[in-house]
Each structure stands twice: as structure tokens, then as C-alpha cells.
Amino acid sequence: MNKYTISALVSNKSGVLTRVAALFARRGYNIESLSVCKTENEALSRMTIVLNGDDYILGQMMKQMDKLIDVKKIKRVEDDAVSRELILIKVRTDAATRSQILEISQIFRAKVVDVSPEATILELTGKPMKLDGFVTMLMPYGVMELARTGVTSISRGKQTIQDETDYKEKI
């Protein structure tokens, strides 16, 4: 099993997320994360999908997605692309552990966004692996809850997703 990241520009309409999610479910693809956001063009949203699978599944998923009328551009994100994820994590804190938690936060360059007598909320942006490491370090103190955004990615250099040709334009 490999991990692949795919970016797609899709119509900013209701139902599009359902369409994409339904496609994964029907074809039996296993996705690790999916994030959707607005773009500079208000008619389009951008999806970033992290997929577990092999080359066959990657190929099928990209082609099947590309066929959807609402998917305008699709691109496999290169391994060296800039990929980031954001985490908010609430850690159980008391007077004895606060300084240790803050020390870990500093090592990871996380931000403290909320402090209360019994809990601290930390915010960290980075590659998913870095976030995993951060969570591992905080586990012993008691992770009360956490929320991750899922990965969002963008290619390096002047190449953009706009350079891709939509399948529907090819035929």
C-alpha cells in the first residue's frame, strides 16, 4: 500500500462532494483524508485527497474522477510538493506538566492558542508526519481531543493544476 495525494479543481456547487465521496465508496477506494476549500475563482473549489492504494487504484481513481462533469482539473501531486496540514490538539495540563508541554510545543514550533487550568490547546501546521510525531509526544500527558484538517498540497515551481488537460477536453 502506498500513499498518493491528488488535487482537483471542482465546481463550487452543492452535491459535488457527495459525488466524489460516492465514487470512492462505490469503487471501493480507501481514502485517508479529503479536504475542500474555496479558491481564487469563486466558481471552483479545490479538493486534496490522500489515497491509500497502488498504482492501479490511483490510475482508476484519477480517471473516474476526471470523468465527473463537475471535476474540471485533476493532478497527482508530486512527492516533493509542498504539503501541509493543520492540527488543533487539546492536552490535559496541570501545574506539573505545563512546562513540559510548552517545551514540546517549542520544539515543534506549535502555537499555544488556549490555556486553562486543566487543559491547553495547541496549534501546529506541518507535514502530516510532523503532526503525527507531535501527537505521539503529547500522548503521555493525555490528549483530550484533536482535530486535523487533512492535507492540502500545491506543486513547486511555476507549474499549476491549471496546466492539466481535462479528460472531457481530450475526446
Partner: peptide
Amino acid sequence: DDAEIDKNVNVTHSVLG
């Protein structure tokens, strides 16, 4: 349909269109 190429049987040559 691009998605039909190599979906069920791997092919040596394909022409999309």
C-alpha cells in the same frame, strides 16, 4: 473512456478517442 483502458485487462497499446 480513459477509465476503461487498463481497467479490466492490461493492454499494450491504447488509443483514446
